[in-house]
Simulated assay, not measured.
Amino acid sequence: MNNENTVSVLNDLLNITNDRIEGFSKVEDKVWDTHSSLKADYDQMVAQSQTMKNDLIQLINGKGGEADNTTSTAGAIHRAWIDVKNSFVADKDESTLENVVFGERAAIDAYQDALDSGDLCPESTRLVSDQLHHLKSSYAKFENLEERN
């Protein structure tokens, strides 16, 4: 197993995790008046993202790599699009929560791609699998927003 490939994949996941954290900061206090029941789940997602970030950095460093503790270009473009879109929509609460769902789905896909790549060592595979489980769990809590209204 090539440590360089493993570190590269883990850094991609770190960028995605940082994208999630940045995206979550855009949700802060925007939807809780109408969706107060989701606040605890949201707070758990934010805390879990910080833990995921720290675990990825620790593993990257342990593999002799240097953590790329930035966000991705795609994530930055998506956040800019959210800002533009939200300036035109009437129901900003629903739009904001739909963006959370979209971001979680994208993160799940990226994590699954990382597992499928074959570039992860067993230790990395265990961590990424565990983090994917958390992503799927948080996604499940938000995916049926339309049914809640």
Rank of each mutant, 00 (worst) to 15 (best):
V7T: 12
L10K: 10
N11I: 01
D12I: 03
L13Y: 14
L14T: 01
L14G: 00
L14R: 07
N15H: 12
N15Y: 05
I21C: 02
K26C: 03
K26R: 12
V27K: 04
V27L: 09
V27P: 02
E28Y: 11
V31M: 13
W32L: 10
D33A: 15
T34Q: 14
H35T: 13
H35N: 14
L38M: 15
D41L: 10
D41R: 06
Y42G: 10
Q44M: 14
Q44A: 14
Q50H: 02
Q50A: 11
Q50G: 05
Q50E: 08
T51S: 10
T51Q: 14
M52G: 07
M52P: 00
M52D: 12
K53C: 04
D55C: 06
D55Q: 14
L56P: 07
I57S: 03
Q58F: 07
Q58N: 14
Q58E: 15
Q58W: 02
I60N: 08
N61W: 04
N61P: 05
N61R: 12
G62T: 08
G62A: 08
G64D: 09
E66V: 15
A67T: 11
N69F: 01
T70A: 12
S72M: 09
H78T: 09
H78V: 10
W81Y: 12
W81S: 05
I82C: 13
I82H: 00
D83W: 05
V84T: 12
V84N: 06
K85E: 14
S87W: 01
F88D: 07
A90V: 13
A90K: 13
D91E: 13
D91V: 09
K92S: 11
D93Q: 09
D93K: 10
E94C: 02
E94K: 10
S95M: 05
L97M: 06
E98N: 12
V100G: 02
V100A: 04
V101R: 10
V101I: 15
V101G: 02
F102C: 00
F102S: 08
G103N: 09
G103V: 00
E104C: 03
R105S: 11
R105P: 02
A106S: 13
A110Q: 10
A110C: 07
A110I: 06
Y111S: 09
Y111L: 03
D113H: 04
A114E: 09
G118T: 08
G118A: 11
G118W: 05
G118Y: 06
D119H: 12
E123Y: 08
S124A: 15
T125S: 13
R126A: 15
R126Q: 14
L127F: 05
S129L: 06
D130K: 12
L132A: 00
H133W: 04
H134E: 11
S138C: 00
S138W: 00
F142K: 02
F142P: 08
L145C: 04
E147C: 00
E147R: 05
E147D: 11
E147H: 02
R148M: 06
N149Y: 11
N149R: 14
N149L: 06
